[in-house]
């Protein structure tokens, strides 16, 4: 395969005498495709990131203004020292802690309600007929468009932020649960029934385990959307939290802290999604069998 690739390369053909060059190129190719391919992957990725940071450093320190205005953009170096500073400030941790608690609460409720309602819709006709219209009507409305109404409805801003965060996670979880429940093979349900399973057993011993891969995918998507909604809610109505921290940095002209907030939010969202995958890992051992 390598041979063919080389001979089809016109450059290699022309320089017939340059045998050493051709074998060297062959060796490089083999190395890239072989066991140490990941080293090259990491080197390439690292170089690309480094190049991006250099470019950022350049435009930010020169205050480049080419339609996009980089004059007020903090340099990577500024952001780095702001991050170190933030890590030594108790307030920063308090903001992170509040956001994490909000996510834990809202996402937790969304997961429990989402799975329960999703299973009921997927399994019981009357439930589907009654609830599906609501889901279809409300689902396309982005969670953050609820912010004004939520502030009007809920007694405190805190509750309206929790509500928005809940909405973000709820719909992906419900929809994935419905899909997982409906996709449960009827052969498995029939098998369980002929072995003496009652409706309740079928639900817990067959339908839920069968829908679990789909449910956890919905939870992972929901986790991302709930961070999105939380940050929007905190920016608009919050008095604490990492979204508030980021928006506040803008208003206080602490531009480096904007990027610190952004990086923190990205990291938290990634970590919490990872946590979901980590939690489902032992439950879905059979899928990797």
């Amino acid at each position: 395969m390598n041979e063919a690739a080389i001979s089809m390369n016109p450059g290699a053909r022309r320089r017939v005498g340059a045998r050493a060059g051709s074998t060297r190129r062959k060796a490089v190719r083999r190395a890239v495709r072989g066991r140490f391919g990941f080293v090259f992957q990491i080197l390439t990725g690292g170089a690309a990131i480094a190049l991006g940071i250099l470019l950022w450093q350049y435009v930010a320190s020169h205050g480049t203004h080419l339609y996009l205005d980089f004059e007020n953009v903090p340099t990577p170096r500024d952001v780095g020292s702001a991050l170190l500073g933030a890590l030594q400030t108790p307030d920063f941790y308090a903001d992170v802690g509040i956001s994490v608690l909000r996510i834990a609460g809202s996402f937790g409720i969304a997961a429990i309600l989402g799975v329960a309602i999703g299973v009921a819709i997927g399994r019981f006709r009357w439930f589907r007929w009654a609830f599906m219209p609501y889901i279809e009507i409300v689902r396309p409305i982005p969670a953050i468009t609820w912010i004004p109404l939520a502030i009007l409805i809920w007694p405190t801003t805190e509750e309206s932020i929790l509500f928005i965060t809940f909405l973000g996670a709820f719909f992906p979880i419900v929809l994935n649960t419905i899909q997982g429940v409906e996709a449960t093979p009827s052969a498995l349900i029939n098998a369980a029934r002929t072995l003496g399973a009652k409706e309740w057993n079928v639900l817990f011993s067959v339908v839920l385990p069968s829908a679990l891969p789909s449910i956890t995918s919905g939870a992972a998507i929901g986790m991302g959307v709930s961070w999105f909604s939380l940050v929007a809610g905190e920016m608009i109505g919050g008095r604490a939290g990492i979204g508030y921290y980021t928006w506040n940095a803008y208003q206080l002209i602490q531009y480096s802290n904007i990027v610190v907030g952004m990086i923190t939010i990205g990291l938290l969202s990634t970590l919490s999604t990872r946590l979901i995958y980590l939690m489902r890992y032992p439950l879905l051992r059979w899928q990797r069998a």
């Binding site: 052969a187 098998a191 002929t194």
Partner: peptide
């Protein structure tokens, strides 16, 4: 359960 069934497709619980 007094009538055991063996199905045409494999109907073992994969999990």
């Amino acid at each position: 359960p007094e009538r055991g069934v063996v199905f045409q497709q494999y109907s073992l619980f994969p999990w």
